[in-house]
């Protein structure tokens, strides 16, 4: 296990390095950030000074070298706009995004899993047809449109929930989160549900497929031949077997929730990473964009590792490479 983790970490460093190279060269091809930073009416000397101050007058490889040496000591550069370290800005926004992504994931699993199992157990029933039809909608209706509709219905017409923003936060066991206040919960319901809809549909489809596959297995028939109740068969034999692929997919999906919640965060003005990076892209705030992309890569590397470890724990047949077999 340890050897496996160590090898994975070494691979991760290589991946991160290559990614930084790609991201850095790509971003140098897009626009000139100085245009965004200075008043268009400024004198040429003024513009040159700004360019020098940010080190943008130097050749790209020198800029990259400076970035790389900085990155190794944990400094991913300062935001052009805010003038503060990119990492610090991201760290400020990260809890809000994490909270939103986690809530969405919990909703997706608690709603999707039971519905998927139900649809898989009675694949030809009316319930299953309604569930599967709903899941097609969940997958095909665009997130931004649904988000807007939810705001119109629940906030504007019914007036039950706030339109946007993150509510009050409270500290509980040393964690600051809006999940611990009523106001915060009210604020998170809409964006989290919006973000979860696609994932609910996905979890339903995965669970349904897994359930149908596992229920046809001989060990389910043998379990029935032992005289076990349906409840026991679902809990002891069905769920442990379908959870293996579901957890694998959800691990990666959790990454996409954190990394690509940008649309939902923009619609609901959720002060998370997604909003930060969208603003940074618009303003050509290179250090933030680079730091964000590297963060996303690192996030997926970690999630993949965690999923592999969970996989090995859940499935006794799986041996991680490098483990004594």
């Amino acid at each position: 296990m340890l050897a496996f983790i160590l090898r994975r970490i070494m691979q991760s460093v290589v991946v991160l390095f290559v990614m930084s190279l790609i991201v850095f060269s790509m971003i140098n091809l897009v626009g000139d950030p100085v245009d965004m930073l200075v008043n268009p009416e400024s004198l040429p000397e003024e513009i040159d000074r700004v360019r020098r101050d940010f080190g943008l007058d130097q050749p790209a490889y020198v800029q990259y070298w400076k970035f790389l040496t900085g990155a190794l000591s944990g400094d991913l550069g300062n935001s052009f706009i805010f003038g503060r370290p990119a990492l610090a800005l991201m760290a400020e926004r990260f809890p809000a995004t994490l909270e939103l992504a986690t809530t969405a994931l919990v909703i997706a699993v608690t709603v999707g899993l039971p519905l998927g199992v139900y649809a898989g157990l009675r694949p030809n029933g009316w319930g299953a047809r309604i569930i599967m039809g709903g899941s097609v909608l969940g997958i095909s209706v665009p997130t931004f449109w649904l988000g807007l509709m939810m705001i119109i219905v629940f906030s504007v017409i019914l007036g039950w929930l706030p339109v946007s923003g993150r509510g009050e936060t409270a500290v509980f066991f040393g964690i600051e989160s809006s999940l611990f206040t009523v106001d915060g919960l009210k604020h998170i319901i809409l964006p989290a549900t919006n973000l979860a809809l696609f994932k609910i549909a996905m979890v339903i489809r995965l669970t349904r497929a897994g359930t149908e596959e596992v229920m046809a297995q001989d060990y389910i028939k043998f379990a029935r031949a032992k005289g076990l109740s349906s409840k026991r068969i679902v809990r002891a034999h069905l769920l442990p077997n379908i959870l293996i692929p579901i957890i694998t997919v959800l691990g990666i999906e959790f990454g996409t929730l954190i990394a690509f919640a940008t649309v939902t965060e923009s619609i609901f003005a959720w002060p998370g990473l997604g909003k930060l990076v969208i603003d940074a892209i618009v303003n050509l705030d290179r250090p933030i964009v680079v730091a964000y992309l590297l963060f996303v890569v690192a996030l997926f590397l970690v999630l993949n590792l965690v999923v592999d470890i969970i996989y090995a724990v859940l499935d006794p047949r799986v041996r991680l490479q490098g483990e004594e077999g």
């Binding site: 001989d218 060990y219 031949a225 032992k226 076990l228 859940l314 006794p316 047949r317």
Partner: peptide, 22 residues
């Protein structure tokens, strides 16, 4: 359910798939 596995038991053809792998 009260009868199966209790008064009447059944054994299937393929032992490699009759047992829950996990």
């Amino acid at each position: 359910q009260g009868l199966r596995g209790n008064k009447v038991a059944m054994i299937f053809q393929d032992p490699t798939t009759s047992l829950n792998p996990v």
